[in-house]
Every structure is written in structure tokens, then in C-alpha cells.
Amino acid sequence: MTDPLRHPDLVEISRRLRDRFDEVLAAEQEAAATTRRRRLTMRERLLDAEDRAETVTLMVLGGMAIEGQLTAVGADHLVVDRTDRTGRQVAVAIEHVVAIETVR
């Protein structure tokens, strides 16, 4: 079926309608992004970092910094392959993480 809005007399109005529709869609997406940020939990942030294979610096209770690649996020802890010279694997209780910084 031919789109009636392609008729030459209606082209201009169809463009305007489309532009307005795009503005609505953009506003909806912006709202979705804001909602996502507001609902995001620390555990979800850690899952994101694991999926992206990011190297992170974790600040944990007591002030210690742990740098390494997040390799697993469990129900109550996470596992980091440290990138320092020890190269050790360390498990950290999620509730002890106070800050996460992405290194790369």
C-alpha cells in the first residue's frame, strides 16, 4: 500500500510530524536513561564491569584500594584478579565496596 504521506502535497507536513515524533522518542529515551541511573545498584555496576572485562580500582572499607580485573560477581562477594606484582586473586564482600573506579 502506498504511504499517503508521500503524496507531494503532504510531504512537508509528514516531515514535520516525523520531526515531532523524533523529539518525543528522544525525550522518552532521555527519561529512560535517567530512570536507569536512579535505579542502578552497586551490584549491577559490578556486573557491568565484569561483562565489560574492565580493570577497576575498588576502594573498600578500611581505606584499602584493590586494582585488578573483575572476574566474577557472586551473590554477596566479588572476585578480582589483581594486576599488582602479586597477581593474586582476591574475594571481596560486596557490602565492603565503597567506591569503584574504572581504570580501562
Binding site: 522518552e28 529515551q29 527519561a31 529512560a32 536513561a33 536507569r36
Partner: peptide
Amino acid sequence: VLSARPWES
């Protein structure tokens, strides 16, 4: 692609 539709979340 982040979307307002529920299927994405």
C-alpha cells in the same frame, strides 16, 4: 540501545 520500552531492561 537504551530504550524506554520494557523489553530492553
